[in-house]
Design a binder for these strands. Structure first.
Lengths: 201, 201
DNA sequence: CATATTATAGAATCAAATTCTAATCTAAAT
DNA sequence: ATTTAGATTAGAATTTGATTCTATAATATG
């Protein structure tokens, strides 16, 4: 510390430590209910440090959200690269989501509850850019299969809800502990349903 | 009032007035960001009165949520009564949701953001009972069509995400203003997709 | 090595949530 | 009609948590 004579500590990893502490708190207590104090305690830092890096609880949440969504998106694009037809692509969208959520349930739980975050304008803008880039890439990937007649031609903004809506809905259910059946045990069902919903016939 | 000499006002409709004021505030400002004070101002009541009826902001939100979800559920069961086959039933689930959201977007926006509410244990229990009753009725309704082979046999907990997930996902999109195309213009697409996902073939 | 910038610290301040006590109203019982 | 118990309203007082502020230490830069 400064005023009280302790030395400053842990500069390099401080940001990351705060993010990890915050995620743990959010997961245990919920975003709305966790206090700055709880995060501070867990991260072992001062209030000043926390505000310096993130400007408050909502800044921490924004950073966490952007990191998480970026990782999720990047993973999907990598896996789409290995797909060579529409059915594989659609299945991959569903299965990747299920895998990702299963591998990092805390982060997934946070992302899913993220509606409650009051993003600052800059974070909002950054997110918008991220989404545009990502969905742009995804639509480019699928576009040829629609043109080729392998997939139904639908209003563009309906593809994502139809393909990803069910698995995301079920993931919320599983993450909240209201169903016993693990995601991976039903993800094939959702992949199949998604393909049936969008395949040309 | 009591201490300051004004008389008490508006006993009968006070609960309802508070709920309406709260919904308006939540819709304009978001649940997390609206203060008790704002609700109090809008409802024209005292802090004491608000706490007496609801025990705080989260109590108001719980009551609003339970009222809303009950109305939504009741409406679906009424409309299912008029259906005589599986396809009609599945389509009705989708179309009813779209209609309901279109008719009361403020309440729908609130329900959709309800993940952020920290329900008190009693509210949680009440909600659980409501869901059990409702989904019990819905599953009873659909059960015969699965047995009869009109619909696919799937893990029970996957039907709701598959049928309702996409329209709910799109409704969130529309309610948040990120898409121009109104729900009713695409609800047929979602009804069709839902039926294709669960029909036996 | 001087200086600027960044990071840390925690006290001080500010705002909102919640509690508490008292007044008023309503309805039931006599 | 009066009394009384419970419900409702009121807002001041208190508590809690968020945010700001100033100071100190570390680090990077010329």
């Amino acid at each position: 510390m400064s005023r009280r004579g302790q030395p400053n500590l842990a500069t390099p990893g401080r940001r990351q430590m705060i993010l990890e502490a915050a995620l743990a708190c959010f997961d245990e207590t919920g975003v709305a209910a966790t206090t700055i104090e709880q995060i501070r305690d867990r991260a072992g830092c001062s209030i000043g440090s926390l505000y310096h890096h993130f400007g408050g609880k909502e800044g921490v949440a924004s950073a966490l959200f952007i990191d998480g969504i970026s990782d999720l998106n990047a993973g999907l694009l990598r896996r789409l690269d290995d797909c060579s037809n529409a059915e594989q692509g659609v299945r991959t969208c569903v299965l990747h989501y299920a895998d990702w959520v299963t591998r990092q349930p805390e982060l997934a739980r946070f992302l899913v509850h993220a509606r409650e975050i009051n993003f600052a304008p800059e974070a909002r803008a950054e997110l918008k850019a991220i989404y545009q880039r990502h969905f742009g890439a995804v639509f480019t990937w699928f576009g040829r299969f629609v043109l080729r007649g392998d997939m139904k031609q639908l209003p563009p903004e309906t593809y994502i809800p139809i393909i990803s809506g069910p698995i995301e809905d079920y993931a919320r259910l599983w993450l909240s502990g209201r169903t016993r059946t693990p995601l991976v045990e039903v993800s094939e069902v959702f992949a199949e349903a998604a393909w049936n919903a969008v395949r040309a016939r």
